[in-house]
Design a binder for these strands. Sequence first.
DNA 1: GCGACAG
DNA 2: ATCTTGTCGC
Length: 234
Amino acid sequence: MSATFHDDLAGAEPLDPGDARALQRRMAGLVRADPVEPDRISTVAGLDVSYAAGDTRLVAAAVVLSLPELRVVDSATAVAEPRFPYVPGLFAFREVPPLLDAIGTLSVTPDVFVCDGFGVAHPRRFGLASHLGVLLERRTLGVGKSPFVGYAEPPAAERGSWSPLVDDGAVVGRSLRTRSGVRPVYVSVRHRVDLGGASELVLRLAPEYRLPEPIRHADRLSRDVLADRAPQRP
DNA sequence: GCGACAG
DNA sequence: ATCTTGTCGC
């Protein structure tokens, strides 16, 4: 797909954490929450980045699946050297550049991007999903594996149960049970997507395992490329 | 001041 | 994120 929407901001890579936080505060104002109807979504891209122990390289992957079949229809990867250290809250500055590279070589433009991280469930309401959504001006949502900010009551044990993730008095996401009896994932919307629609979509994307299929595919692909192995079986 | 802290 | 074996359970 084509380049980013806000190219000016995409090229604005901060030099230090202070600049990065300031940039997040400015960009947070560009985020919107539009309703999304899961029935009208036909392609979803899963995104993930892998790292290796004794290797400085990092590999970003984007895998596009069709709905409701959940079949892989496109994929792309990008190898890079991290340009920013891992700092909680500034995660996007580390992973967005390589993710944009991978996304840029996709031959199709997916309806929604599912990120490994959060959207507005973030100290400055501008996590990875928000960041990517604003730069691409596309629908994005985040699925986290562990809580970052806020608190959520444990959802009931059955798949589909959820509870609001509240931070500083605001609902910033949902703790959602995608598998009965398995610890929940944290859905955090953020750009041109609403929380209810995002949760319903995540449930459709995760019919069998805890994590959404698009993310599982991206995780496996990025790991295979990093290990210099041929992409594994479907 | 101290602890927590997405991946 | 990544380093790692076996083991309990459906």
